[in-house]
Design a binder for these strands. Structure first.
Length: 277
DNA sequence: AAGGTACCCAACCGCAGAAGG
DNA sequence: GCCTTCTGCGGTTGGGTACCT
């Protein structure tokens, strides 16, 4: 259709964001909320493309973001969700409060993929390599089942297989993806993931469960009693943005955010409830 | 200490789909 | 129904840093 570039390339700054730019963007969103991103750079006095502003906000500046590596439970959840949803990072991220699709995608590519390969598991199909070679017709019944028709192997099956030196490691196959998961939460997760009704609900494009309060376009001023319905004690949009800037240095926990597990279970419970309707 | 390599992650790019006129 | 605009998504890139020789 011959789309125009999202912004005039002339005079648009690229590359890493400076603290000053971050401040401007945060200030703008605090006072105006998230409106049309295209207008944000101009209104906020930034020489950035709107897209870049949105990305910066969603991937880095949002105060509800978690920092640091994914913990084991989160990682396991990502693996399970990926087995069912494929490379739909945004959907996966929607199940992991405080995590962004970009973050999960990066973590998948740099950590999880290698981990699975090392265990002799194809990160695309989530099948052990030897099993895959043996019988393709056998509808899998493994825990990382392929309920998903598209589970990531129809459109992007060309990638990531070239590095399958994991075949050489297939003797490690006896260790399932859950081999490291002996904690209670992992057990719980597994049981959740084996719950068919719950899994089915993952296919439904339900409204976002975690970031609603950030996705709405209400001006911050109207949001003084936010987060009640979701049960997330986000700091209120008020006063100035200093807390928000500080937030980047600490992490959501420091603001009394619920731990991942609590949120996760809330999300999963919500899914379950939805499925019953 | 210096150079090379691997790794990580923030940011960019291009496309698809939704929304509105 | 068509066209345009905007947003969001997934793939990819490139700079910074850690590690290795």
């Amino acid at each position: 259709m011959g789309r125009q570039p999202c912004c005039d390339k002339l005079g648009v700054k690229k590359g890493p964001w400076t603290a000053e730019e971050d401040k401007k963007l945060i200030n703008f969103i605090l006072t105006n909320g998230q409106c049309c991103w295209r207008a944000v750079p101009k209104l906020a006095g930034l020489r950035r493309c709107g897209k870049s502003c949105r990305l910066r906000w969603t991937n880095y500046l949002r105060p509800d973001l978690k920092r640091g590596l994914l913990n084991e439970a989160e990682e396991q959840l990502v693996i399970d969700l990926h087995a069912r949803l494929g490379n739909r990072w945004s959907k996966i991220a929607a199940r992991l409060p405080g995590r962004t699709d970009n973050e999960i995608k990066n973590h998948w590519n740099t950590h999880i993929k290698k981990k699975l390969l090392k265990m002799g598991i194809d990160p695309v199909t989530h099948e052990p390599f030897h099993k895959e070679a043996k019988t393709e017709e056998s509808s899998s019944i493994s825990q990382t089942d392929n309920l998903l028709p598209e589970s990531g192997n129809n459109n992007n099956n060309n990638s990531s297989m070239q590095e399958n030196d994991g075949i050489a490691n297939s003797e490690e196959n006896s260790s399932s993806p859950q081999e490291n998961c002996c904690s209670d939460e992992s057990i719980l997760l597994n049981s959740i993931c084996n719950d068919e009704t719950l899994l089915n609900s993952l296919w439904i494009d339900e409204p976002p469960l975690v970031d609603a309060s950030w996705n709405n376009n209400n001006p911050p001023a109207t949001e003084n009693t936010n987060n009640g319905e979701m049960g997330y004690p986000y700091p209120s949009w008020e006063d100035n943005c200093t807390w928000l800037l500080d937030c980047q240095d600490f992490g959501v926990q420091d603001f009394g955010f619920d731990s991942f597990d609590n949120l996760e279970f809330k999300s999963l419970n919500a899914l379950e409830m939805e499925d019953k309707h």
